[in-house]
């Protein structure tokens, strides 16, 4: 279980995240939403020890992530950030193989090979496994990165805006895969999302941030309604039900 206790991060005098405490529920998708500059990405980066918090702590199984050995932590928590900017020429298979790095330091055992193979099949990458990343489309590349994280086989998968620069089809594809990871493999996914409707349709829990503070935190149903959304976004957002999905119609809203 991941517990976040009183995390604060300041850049200069300006607090980006201030005194955030929450618990990530296991075996579920939790989405971080909120306006620009709310501190979503910074919070995610602190949870995954990419940046240090000024105060507060993140506990994984009741132990501060900073006191985890980094190679052990890499077997429990993975994080994917704006990975589309990677300029290393690796094939899809090589990239996915590096997901096993925490276990084998790059010398793959037959067991590692199995994980790699499974991850590639899971993400439907078999046909393009020998292509270089720079020959792929944005959606294929994102799938390759997620395959790497699957091969890394961590309980917790943290993703920072994985739908950036993806078209509708690929976005839906990625979100469905994340849903499968939770439902079929029992993973815990934490994701920063910009599009509130993806958060509404696919996540189990939503954490809404604003000015570095948690303003709402609960099951998706409790957050996706006009009152809560007004508090988060300062907008009047009607919510309509469509095929069992709650869709926020914010495109022509009056503030």
């Amino acid at each position: 279980m991941i517990e976040i206790k009183g995390l604060t991060k300041k850049y200069g005098n300006k607090p980006v995240v201030s005194d955030v405490s929450l618990t990530i529920r296991p075996h579920a998708i939790t989405s971080f939403i909120g306006p620009n500059g709310a501190g979503k990405s910074t919070l995610l980066s602190m949870v995954s020890r990419l940046i240090d918090a000024d105060t507060g702590e993140v506990l994984l199984d009741n132990k501060n992530v900073k006191s985890w050995k980094s190679s052990e932590l890499a077997k429990r928590v993975s994080i994917l950030k704006q990975s589309n900017f990677l300029n290393v020429r690796l094939t899809v298979r090589e990239l996915v193989s590096f997901g096993r790095y925490p276990y084998s330091k790059g010398r793959l055992t037959p067991e590692d090979e199995q994980y790699v193979e499974k991850a590639i099949e899971y993400m439907n990458l078999k046909e393009i496994e020998d292509k270089y990343l720079d020959q792929l489309s944005g959606g294929q590349r994102q799938r390759a990165f997620i395959a790497m994280v699957i091969a890394q086989d961590t309980d917790y998968i943290l993703l920072d805006e994985p739908l950036n620069n993806l078209d509708m089809k690929h976005s839906v594809q990625i979100m469905k895969i994340l849903r499968q990871l939770v439902d079929e493999l029992g993973k815990t996914v934490v994701i920063v999302l910009h599009d509130i409707n993806f958060a509404s349709v696919y996540s189990d829990y939503i954490v809404a941030l604003k000015n570095g503070k948690v303003v709402k935190n609960g099951p998706t149903d409790e957050i996706i309604n006009s009152e809560a959304l007004r508090e988060i976004y300062d907008m009047n957002i009607p919510v309509q039900e469509q095929n069992g999905c709650r869709i926020c119609v914010y495109f022509n809203s009056h503030t």
């Binding site: 890499a74 077997k75 950030k81 790095y101």
Partner: peptide, 19 residues
């Protein structure tokens, strides 16, 4: 060599893999 390749994917990437 493997460590250099991982480091070449950037600091965030390397930290994610426990390097």
């Amino acid at each position: 060599a493997n460590k250099f390749t991982v480091a070449g994917m950037g600091e965030d990437f390397a930290k994610n893999l426990g390097l």
